[in-house]
């Protein structure tokens, strides 16, 4: 679930309020958005993609309220990492040049499982 919005990084654009598909955030006139309905957060990370300031962090546990401290988030190096991994601001910049491999790699994984399972069954008699 969303853990923290860093006020010193937030430029108040409220893109996250608009982009959140489940209405977790409320805009404020005098500061960064507030986490108003955390029980509706599905931990989808979409707010991170839409935050150009890399000002917010989603904790990966969708079952429990986050306890991570802002200091630990900053030290983790994860703030903004996902958006940069996507190449979200540079579409067409080669970030999708390996995407075609998804299907072949998925099938290769399944074939590995099939071969291994045959051996597993033979081994167990």
């Amino acid at each position: 679930m969303i853990a923290h919005i860093f006020e010193e990084r937030c430029d108040g654009c409220n893109s996250c309020v608009a982009a959140c598909p489940t209405h977790v955030l409320d805009a404020r006139t005098d500061g960064p958005p507030v986490i108003a309905r955390i029980d509706q957060c599905q931990t989808c990370y979409m707010c991170e993609l839409y935050c150009e300031s890399d000002a917010l962090y989603v904790d990966p546990d969708q079952m429990a309220r986050p306890t991570i401290t802002p200091q630990a988030i900053l030290e983790s190096g994860q703030l903004g990492r996902l958006r940069h991994d996507y190449g979200w601001d540079q579409p067409g910049d080669g970030h999708l040049s390996d995407f075609w491999r998804l299907g072949p790699l998925l099938r290769e994984g399944a074939e590995i499982a099939t071969r291994r399972y045959a051996a597993f069954k033979a081994d167990r008699g």
């Binding site: 990370y45 989603v58 904790d59 990966p60 983790s76 994860q78 990492r81 996902l82 991994d85 996507y86 970030h95 040049s97 390996d98 995407f99 491999r101 998804l102 790699l105």
Partner: peptide, 14 residues
């Protein structure tokens, strides 16, 4: 990471 970046945060962040 290049194919499905969103697969990683659940692990890296733990």
């Amino acid at each position: 990471r290049r194919i499905q970046p969103a697969s990683l945060p659940p692990f890296e962040r733990r």
